[in-house]
Design a protein around this nucleic acid. Structure first.
Lengths: 247, 247
DNA sequence: TATTTTTTTGACAACTTGTCATTTATCGAC
DNA sequence: GTCGATAAATGACAAGTTGTCAAAAAAATA
């Protein structure tokens, strides 16, 4: 079942090579610099062969996203497994999300390109299903954390509020903050030196407002952040520091 | 100063005609259906003339956004002037934002296309400045509401939190929620019949968590929503109802 | 009316994406 | 090994894009 012929392995490897090239093209010259011709040229295959792997340009973008979604899923899974209260695990999810966006800016922006504009209509069902599946898995992780919270009694949802409301709320906040940061706004000039930190502070208010214990007044959020970095994302934290110091 | 020659008026009018056509093209066939050739064809001018108005395709998109930004600014100004507490006015801003996104889906999605991907690099400075200016005005409005809150004593910001943190937090939440809704996710199926309402509920938690009085426990958020619709956005509310019933 | 200035035009170059008949390589049977 | 059948790779091509620019047309001015 899992056995692949040499040829099949070769094809899979070539596909990966083409995706690497595509990412490099985008990294070098922005999304407009991605062209099928150029992938063919740099991979030293003909255009027809490129089209044998990807029925159209949009599918290249989807494939790039899908490949990096595995990374996101991994980060979220580790965050969810953080050894702490349900609320602390939810905070870890937020940190994981920010880490993903900052360490994979190209892939994060590609998601936006795919979802917005005219790309959606051209993608095939299989790719779309794969995408939805990953999303579902992530939503499931967060729902799990919320359920753990309600079961342990740390979280008593306000009347009229469902766990999914919470998922959507925190997801939207986190995503919105990260998307806004990809826009070339000079936040520092406006008076927002660290938008992600701002978001985190507001998020703590949100969790407080839902009465999700332990409240931030009983706990130092900054200390928690350090603990999550140290225990769950030591490598990623190092990468992040290297990135921000090099800029 | 404000006097324009007949010719100048003609040119401005033609520009508007071209933008109308561009919007129609996008509305009919998605963003990929927008082409300079087609604008020329439908406006019955030559391509060269179209390029006299817009140096490139990206500037057409920018112009569409800028035109609709005036609408957003107007909605926000009216929301900010709502006759209520500072917190209620902040809620009105959230409603204004959602109204804008739902009544102008085409323009809202165009913003995303502009900000993401390869469009940004090609726009000229003047257009960018105009964009930033509108954004600044909006941020100013929200900062004003927060300052009113702190001055009246209704809002005592948690230690280490600035008004701009709050602006960014609520902006990101609201924006993220609206962007997620433009992705073709079947929220109903997931168990989220009304994502905007979910967002609003979570937002109330956020304001509660900041201790922004009057807390939602002292006040019915649903009633407030109705009041804002009735007092500030009666026409827009009607449009929204017409839209959702027609789908 | 004649001349200068401005505006408009559409053919063009340079680039896309995606297709498909033709060529080339691979593989199993003998 | 050789041959024929099957699979894969190729690149010329059609059809579309954006953006330019010399020449034509229109408008303004003398």
């Amino acid at each position: 079942m899992t056995k692949l012929t040499r040829k099949q392995r070769e094809i899979l490897q070539r596909r990966d090579l083409m995706l690497d090239i595509a990412e490099q093209l985008i990294a070098d010259g922005g999304h407009q610099a991605l062209s099928m011709d150029r992938i063919a040229e740099l991979s030293e295959y003909s255009k027809g062969t490129v089209y044998q792997h990807f029925p159209n340009k949009e599918e290249v973008l989807i494939a790039i996203c899908l490949r990096s979604m595995a990374v996101l899923g991994d980060l979220f899974e580790r965050a969810s497994a953080f050894n702490g209260t349900s609320r602390e695990r939810m905070t870890a999810i937020g940190i994981a999300h920010a880490l993903y966006a900052k360490l994979n800016p190209l892939q994060f922006s590609t998601i936006q390109v795919i979802k917005s504009g005219s790309v959606r209509e051209k993608i095939c069902n299989a790719s779309n299903d794969a995408h939805v599946e990953v999303e579902q898995r992530i939503i499931g992780l967060i729902v799990g954390i919320i359920q753990d919270g309600t079961q342990s009694g740390d979280l008593v949802l306000p009347p009229g509020m469902t766990p999914l409301d919470v998922v959507f709320g925190v997801w939207a906040s986190s995503y919105g903050a990260l998307v806004l940061q990809t826009y070339d706004i000079d936040f520092d000039e406006i008076g927002l030196p660290d938008p992600t930190a701002s978001m985190m502070r507001v998020m703590q208010c949100t969790l407080d407002g839902m009465g999700w214990k332990p409240l931030s007044s009983d706990n130092d959020p900054l200390l928690l952040k350090e603990r999550i970095y140290a225990e769950v994302f030591p490598d990623e934290h190092k990468q992040l520091l290297a990135l921000s110091s090099s800029r």
